[in-house]
Design a protein around this nucleic acid. Sequence first.
RNA 1: CGGGAAGUAGCUCAGCCUGGUAGAGUACUGCGUUCGGGACGCAGGGGCCGGAGGUUCGAAUCCUCUCUUCCCGACCA
Length: 511
Amino acid sequence: MKKNALSITREDDFAGWYQQVISEADLAEESGVRGCMIMRPWGYGIWERVQYLMDQRIKATGHENCYFPLFIPLSYFAKEAEHVDGFAKEMAVVTHHRLTKGEDGGLIVDPEAKLEEPLVVRPTSETVIGTAFARWVQSWRDLPVMINQWANVVRWEMRTRMFLRTSEFLWQEGHTAHASKAEAMEETLNILEMYREFSENVLAMPVVAGEKPENERFPGADATYSIEAMMQDGKALQAGTSHFLGQTFSKAQNIRFQDKEGEFQFAYTTSWGTSTRMIGGVIMTHGDDDGMRVPPLIAPYQVVIVPMLRDKPEDEEVLDYCKALAKEIAGLRAFDEAVRVKLDISGAKTQTKRWSWVKKGAPVILEIGPRDMAEGKVAMIRRDALYQDSGKLDTKFLAKDEFLPEIPALLEEIQAALHGEAKERLDSNITRGIEHWSDVERFYKENKKYPGWLEVQWCKASGDELEAIEERLKKLKLTFRNVPVDADAVDGNCIFSGKPADERIIIGKAY
RNA sequence: CGGGAAGUAGCUCAGCCUGGUAGAGUACUGCGUUCGGGACGCAGGGGCCGGAGGUUCGAAUCCUCUCUUCCCGACCA
């Protein structure tokens, strides 16, 4: 009888399973502050890998990092009405700068210390960065400006879920200003492609890249693009967005330059971001009933060595053997980096340690006991293929000297296997060819549990017309995800209006 | 922000209805026996029962307020 490391399976209770993975894999925990989480070393270590590999890509595409303040004067938001409408309901605001002793001796906010102008804790930095851009940009020679910052932002969400929607979250936000519309649009799409490539190759999380319909746009944007990943319950997770802001923000913030003819022009701006939400996506893409499975590229440790110690004199020898092994592995290179190896010398029992690394999802776990040492072997567990068909743990006993040189290829194989599994799931759960709205309703009624997505043809709608369509979708708890950039040409009629369609669009339930 | 549930040992929870010295499992510490699929025995340590106020001789238990978490909605770049 196969026994899994978690007590809640994905099949029984996906939401409960998700929380249990986070807790059992030591990714994060509650902090006592509404919607704010503590990221534990394993969870934060994954984020650091994401940061490192994303940062390389951001810099390779010509952007530079900088840092803007956490606090934004309230008045900055007043300049762009649509933008502030989008965020007004979820802003944390600092109004005082001092505490004092209350009548009962406890600390209270000092009413004497009220700020002249309230400060908003940034929900995103378009306003403050745009204000700086207005100073930085005077001439066409100053363009383009291409910057990025790694920061925390705060959005006072009504309902929060760890990693997916927290009040405070970590992200990168890129902001650029360009002389021409074409160049800004090119940047927007280049970033979209960067996000798609990153998600596929680094997170092993296949996505659909496409444009959001008008109702899903970033407040103030002319166009919003997203990458959408499919979770194991068939729901969509927006894992990154790239916005073409047109001249909306440059006009509001006066980002103006003189062109080669000496004429004043407003710049075209973009903004784009990915956040710690991606880790939630990785959990729901790769996790299984034994916990997390971390793709090797973002695993803080790719190989974990668990020595089998027994409080006996030969422990010393086993440890020495393991230390030498760890040193050899650390000298290997995979994905053009040194292999990250951890020798777990904590005092916990061997079995406890093994299952703890299984739940954390370390890609390769090596158990080394006196017998292995004597025979020059390692006992190897692949996290992406834990069990034999019989349901037994698939521990492979391998000759150390033959196994070691294979580690880089093994890690690359695991990375590819995780991607392949997820890609298969994504592809087989996008249903095409539904032509009538009644069939959409039937489809989601018949596939209650994990229905996945539909790709349908429609007439690009906006305004009231779009709102009416949205209402129809909402009754089935559906939303538009995006219009895939690589979709086939249309060859049919709009599923909503029956008129000849303009484009293909993805519909699904979303996080 | 509306509806529901919950907060008691590190963790999972019982006790509450019907007020009277704080409980279990697990984890932890020590000793012994074990050891390649989460071992077993014995002995220990560990709590202002989420917080504040009230009722009472007496509150984990009853009442009020508040904070936090989870589920369902609404909201959500």
